[in-house]
Design a binder for these strands. Structure first.
Length: 726
RNA sequence: GGGCGCUUAGCUCAGUUGGUUAGAGCGACUCGUUUACACCGAGUAGGCCGGGGGUUCGAAUCCCUCAGCGCCCACCA
């Protein structure tokens, strides 16, 4: 008998990984039902569930995906080996606006535009596009070793998902937590849709700032093009400089289109500290101005259209885009003697679309809004009472702070790619009515004609319901078994977009928290700590690394030293270190297999004090690693096993073993034989135990070694072997 | 404007309720290729744990303060 030949060569991940994945998948053990069927876990075993954050089906996986797959796979494999009823449910996200933006870029490259296509054509094309990406992405997730249950995979546009989302929409309407109303929304003139506050970025800019004579007042603005319709002058009620003016007084003003009558409005929003303390308002194109107008029941008028061009009210400037019109308007103001001065060094931050960086133009639109405060209060309570435990404490504070300052949520999007909003809109009075079953034929308010709401839901409205839609709320057995899920593992950047919404909507719809724990990982940056981006050219493709260094090395490189919640600098040299570690394990195995070759290892016979001590140490490691895994300290556990395997097992124990195993010169043959046998058992025990500890982190090489062992004291795959101290 | 962090070896970072000579990877230097592995081994150098103050028998760890860096949220007439 001799040891397998493969150990005579360095470890070659590429030669084994895909076969191993196939083996796992064919075993069926990714599916907890199969585990029960085959006695790997019991029906009444403690359930453990993770819903995978569905990756966007509009591209390939990046380093952040590799991190979350690794973390969740560690959690899943650990739970499975502990005999828990373990489900990791995968999915893919249609990612509404995100995907439509990606697809529009693709169209632009081909010289096409969505505005030249019918909704149906566009929808069909994007559907095909996502399905193609989805299957490509699934292959990549497999390559990373994910032990998720593919038989339960869902797409965010599957019928079951849509049905549940519609149910929630209807319920919100019944509970008076939904309304449709004219509001100031963030409008992107390029993408032709409204965006939530979270989808707006701010950019620091330096622009000219104009001081303009407005009747007896001086007003300041960086945006003279919005001023055509301004006919209200707002000032703070306590501003003594303007004590002579009373609320509602009229003032004659020479303005852009001739003489107008403006009205004085006293409102707390007027800040005496800024400029002259006087401002005019443009309710249609400013959220703050709109609020003031609402408070005093003022008129409002649209000045700029959805494409960012001036309307007829702008007189000779009508039809011009803002950038072109602005200097010409300033010129006119100057000619009219209204321009007092220009400040060229005005620095301010302007709202821009987070996708295209085009300036956001606030517009008044009828949209569907969710009243979030009541939902947020319950979410807050769940977090504060630790019904949902958030890791880390810092992220917990961030989440609570946001929930305390939450605003109503605009869930309407003027895009094609998404779940249609099931509602009818009256063509006459603009009233909107929820209509899940497509039954309404006339406006319930005015009897007018109705048409289908052309808008779709904000993606986060549907993905905010993902934990219970995936599990089949309310009647599916999976829902009953696995909800609330054990842990939600996702990126720190999704705390507001997704996690907070899942907590709110989960509590609202099911009455229970959607998950008991939230684990936030940080962002994956390049080796120098810079954010990866295509334009910087510093993007590291995890799949390339996986092929070059082995998936196990990639996984270790992503985990070790990466404390929860903190960003990670992905250094290729670090991954190389774990590639070497893979090979080290390989050679440890080779040594131990060689030294125990032909020995019956079915019963342990550890007799010497030294060996008992070694086993005690090993058990201490097992305890510590288990504790760290239970405390979500994956970065410490991985490092501990690494350190033990290399610097304890290989450097010390193996070296010392050489003299025990090869003491041929001694006259004390009997004693030596016992000691030798004891050491052989010891080494073999350490090897099998270490493989188990390491399996969640480095599943491929450990499984590959495991299946080459002659004697395991337990049958089957390492993936479903019993965790050492469970 | 509000909130949250970070500052530890040349570089990138760990360090879990305060406890003996502060750790890892990479890098540097010296030595070593005798039968697990050169994708290796043995060893060395390198840190007033950002500055200052305080609590304590004891502080990288807790408190205050200063400096530098970063992230998030809100917003600007």
């Amino acid at each position: 008998m001799s040891i397998p030949e493969k150990f005579l060569k360095p470890y070659d991940p590429q030669a084994v990984e895909s076969d191993l994945y196939k083996l796992w998948q064919e075993s069926g053990y990714f599916n907890p039902d199969k585990c029960i069927e085959n006695g790997v876990c019991k029906t009444d075993a403690e359930p453990f569930s993770i819903i995978m954050p569905p990756p966007n089906a509009n591209g390939s996986l990046h380093a952040g995906h590799a991190l979350f797959v690794t973390l969740q796979d560690i959690m899943t494999r650990f739970a499975r080996m502990q005999g828990k009823r373990t489900l990791w449910l995968p999915g893919a996200d249609h990612a509404g606006f995100e995907t439509q933006v990606v697809y529009e870029k693709k169209l632009a490259k081909e010289g096409r535009s969505r505005f030249q296509m019918t909704r149906e054509e566009l929808y069909k094309e994007i559907w095909d596009f996502t399905q193609e990406n989805k299957s490509f992405m699934e292959g990549q997730i497999r390559q990373l070793g994910a032990s998720c249950d593919w038989s339960r995979e869902l797409f965010t546009l599957d019928d079951r998902v849509i049905k549940t989302v519609y149910g929630t929409f209807e319920q919100l309407a019944k509970d008076d937590l939904l309304y449709r109303g004219l509001r100031s929304i963030n409008w992107c003139p390029k993408h032709q849709t409204g965006l939530s506050n979270l989808e707006v970025d701010y950019q620091e800019r330096k622009d000219p700032f104009y001081y303009i004579k407005y009747g007896p007042f001086t007003i300041g603005t960086a945006r003279p093009e919005t001023k055509f319709g301004d006919k209200y002058i707002v000032m703070h009620p306590d501003d003594k400089r303007y004590g002579e003016y009373k609320h509602g007084d009229s003032v004659e003003v020479d303005w852009l289109n001739g003489k107008i009558t403006a009205t004085i409005i006293k409102d707390e929003a007027g800040d005496p500290e800024i400029g002259s303390g006087v401002m005019t308002i443009t309710p249609w194109h400013s959220a703050i101005d709109w609020e003031i107008a609402q408070r005093h029941n003022l008129d409002y008028e649209q000045i700029i259209d959805e494409r960012g061009k001036l309307l007829d009210i702008a007189g000779e400037f009508a039809g011009m885009p803002i950038t072109e019109a602005r200097p010409k308007i300033v010129e006119k103001l100057d000619k009219m003697g209204l321009l007092i001065k220009t400040d060229e060094s005005y620095e301010h931050s302007v709202p821009v679309c987070y996708k295209c960086s085009r300036e956001i133009e606030p517009q008044l639109k009828e949209q569907w809004f969710v009243k979030t405060q009541p939902l947020a209060d319950k979410a807050k309570e769940a977090i504060e009472s630790d019904k949902i435990k958030i890791i880390t404490d810092e992220q917990k504070k961030v989440a609570l702070h946001w929930l305390e300052n939450i605003e109503d949520w605009n869930i309407s999007r003027q895009i094609t790619w998404g779940i249609p909003i099931p509602a009818k809109i009256c063509t006459e009075c603009k009233h909107g009515e929820v209509d899940i079953d497509d039954k309404i034929t006339e406006c319930p308010k005015c009897g007018g004609k109705v048409e289908q709401d052309p808008d779709t839901f904000d993606t986060w409205f549907s993905s905010g319901q993902w934990p219970f839609t995936t599990l089949g709320y309310p009647n599916n057995d999976d829902f009953k078994t696995y909800y609330p899920t054990s842990i939600m593992e996702t990126g720190r950047d999704l705390v507001f977009f997704w996690v907070s919404r899942m907590i709110m909507l989960g509590l609202y719809r099911t009455g229970e928290v959607p998950f008991k724990t939230v684990f936030f990982h940080g962002m994956v940056n390049d080796a120098k700590g810079k954010k990866m981006s295509k334009s910087k050219g510093n993007v590291i493709n995890p799949l390339d690394i996986s092929e070059q260094y082995g998936t196990d090395a990639l996984r270790m490189g992503l985990i070790v030293g990466n404390a929860p919640g903190s960003d990670l600098n992905l250094d290729i040299q670090k991954i190389n270190a774990y590639k070497k570690f893979s090979n080290k394990l390989w050679n440890i195995t080779r040594f131990i297999l060689t030294e125990t070759n032909g020995v019956d290892l079915s019963k342990t016979a550890i007799t010497t004090d030294t060996d008992k001590q070694i086993i005690d140490n090993l058990n201490a490691i097992v305890e510590q690693v288990t504790k760290e895994l239970n405390n979500y300290q994956y970065h410490l556990a991985a490092d501990r096993i690494y350190h033990y395997a290399w610097h304890e097992l290989a450097d010390k124990i193996l070296e010392e073993s050489k003299s025990i195993l090869h003491s041929s010169t001694s006259s004390e043959q009997e004693v030596d034989k016992t000691a030798k046998l004891s050491r052989q058992y010891t080494l073999y025990t350490i090897l099998t135990t270490t493989l188990k500890l390491l399996h969640p982190f480095m599943p491929f090489i450990t499984e590959e070694i495991w299946r080459s062992l002659p004697e395991k004291n337990e049958e089957g795959m390492l993936m479903v072997a019993k965790w050492p101290n469970s």
